[in-house]
Amino acid sequence: MVEFLQYIVSGISLGAVYGLVGIGFTMIYNSTKIINFAQGEFVMLSGMIAAVLVEAGMGLLLAIFFAVGGSTLMGWVLKICVSHSKKASTLSLIILTLGFSLTLRGLVEVFLGKEIHRLPSLVGEGTFSFLGAIVTIQGFFVVVVLILVATLLYFFFTRMKEGKAMLGASENADGAQVVGISLSKTLLLNFLLATLSAGIAGIILTPITAVHFESGIFLGLKGFCAAIIGGLANPFAAILGGMALALTESLVAGYISSEYKDVFAFLLLLLILVFRPEGLLKRRL
């Protein structure tokens, strides 16, 4: 029983990371109908910037500020690229994000190096026991951050005018324009929020897993799966999808073998795509 709980606990904090990356996929998908394959690179970028700056002697908080700021800034650049190719088909835009991700990865490799980097934790390395299972403070912190980000986003989308305007613009672009909503502005907000949450994910994940220039590939893939499993219609579904994915991985790794965890994770994705293509959560926000 304790063993089971242990797998659940580690699954949940991993799921929180997947969810945080997945939220960004959903937001950009809803505003543009494109899958942003650069999403994982923003997580990597933020982790890399923070780690390199701290290694160079900068204070942790300041380094985090630059890291999250840096990855969000790149989100802005990506938005400009997408806006510039307005007439391009969805497929071309998806390929554009793939190109953007290769570029980011290459730039990081050239300027920040190929080495694996570590980042000190914001909350320390301690652990505590929960019903016999060991919970790391960092793992717990990931979940707290996810809840915080999700709550803020929920408040933004359901209570604030700009948030509702973003939902409106993704529902009906013409309808949004005729009430005076700027599509370009809502698109930018979507990209900024998506890359901001990716940047935050990088900061809380790097102390746990370390980072190098290729980390974004795996993270992007997992975040993408989380978004698909949860359902692309609703940003918060990605959290559900992330949890489902990570719990599957964690339980398979625990009870069967960690060699099979990815097999089962993709099996879950496949089952969802076949039997419930709209994802676990159909309801929109």
């Binding site: 509702k164 529902e171 009906n172 929109r284 926000l285």
Partner: peptide, 8 residues
């Protein structure tokens, strides 16, 4: 066609 925000 009204162009409403259907899910809002």
């Amino acid at each position: 066609g009204r162009a409403l925000f259907s899910n809002l």
